[in-house]
């Protein structure tokens, strides 16, 4: 491994949670602005996490603690693998392991809220994971590789060839961000029928670890989004900014849906959009 790669990995591991936290803060500020409120300071997510780290630990059982730490390690590993410009499929599998352990930790507690939240989280995973694989396959069709360094070497923005697949990826982004209409397993806003859903039984420092892992996850998905305009820095920033702004607007204008609606809508729209995009790719080749 080269020195450059090691530096990239260390930088990514340090900067990713900072970027994720800032993004969450800006998100809350913008949401407040849309609702006619002033909103919390931009650094609010960091205050929340530091406060949670300083709280007394309340242990439900061994599994919960174990699962939280595995989730964090998997999230960090994903970002590190991305910085190493490794294989997209490898990143996908590691990400899945983290998500599954998060659900397993919620299942380990007998609370009905956390159980129901865990079931819904599993359905969310069932919804977005096939779509992510389809997106990766689409990238493979265009660039001929799953390796990130070879995708980056492609001389045109992939977005121009795969615009519909990018839309499909934003479905996965919305689900991962836990935003409306897909915030059925746990909401960042209080007052839902599930208390805090899958997060109910995690408390104190363990909730803080989950939050940090969540920031890593968000940064990873946004990094995958950024692959779609990797040729110019300005194009990449504009694409990400527009995507995230659209996420916040959608979060504010849509209500929470049921899991059945989510599954049928996201699969139907996502798979048909991917199909059209693939058909377009083939039509272009002839």
């Amino acid at each position: 491994m080269e020195i450059k790669t090691i530096v990239y990995v260390i930088l990514a591991i340090i900067l990713a949670p900072i970027a994720g936290g800032l993004l969450a803060g800006i998100d809350r500020r913008l949401t407040a602005w849309f609702q006619g409120r002033f909103g919390p300071p931009i650094l609010q997510p960091f205050y929340d996490v530091i406060k949670l780290l300083g709280k007394d630990r309340q242990v439900v059982n061994y599994w919960q603690i174990f699962c939280v730490h595995i989730y964090l390690v998997a999230a960090i590993l994903c970002v590190a693998l991305f910085a190493m410009q490794s294989d997209l499929l490898m990143i996908f599998f590691v990400m899945t392991i983290g998500a599954v352990f998060m659900v397993a930790g919620a299942m380990a507690a007998p609370s009905p809220y956390s159980q129901l939240g865990a079931q819904r989280e599993l359905i969310q995973m069932l919804t977005y994971e096939p779509l992510l694989v389809i997106v990766f396959v689409g990238i493979y069709f265009v660039t001929g590789s799953f390796k990130i360094d070879e995708i980056l070497a492609y001389d045109r923005p992939i977005f121009l060839l795969l615009p519909l697949l990018y839309l499909v990826l934003t479905f996965a982004l919305t689900i991962k961000l836990r935003k409306s209409p897909f915030d059925i397993s746990a909401s960042h806003h209080a007052h839902q029928e599930l208390v805090r859903g899958v997060l109910t039984e995690y408390s104190g420092p363990y909730l803080a670890i989950l939050e940090i892992a969540h920031w890593y996850d968000i940064v990873l998905i946004l990094a995958i989004c950024s692959l779609f305009w990797s040729t110019s820095f300005i194009g990449m920033v504009i694409l990400l900014a527009v995507t995230y702004l659209a996420e916040i607007v959608i979060d504010n204008v849509t209500p929470r849906m049921t899991w059945k609606w989510m599954l049928t809508y996201v699969w139907a729209v996502g798979i048909s959009l991917s199909f059209f995009n693939m058909a377009l790719l083939y039509a272009k080749n002839f």
Partner: peptide, 14 residues
């Protein structure tokens, strides 16, 4: 708008 002070009404005692 108490959220400007970081106050959240969280529905979970934990």
């Amino acid at each position: 708008d108490v959220e400007r002070f970081g106050i959240l009404n969280i529905g979970n005692p934990k």
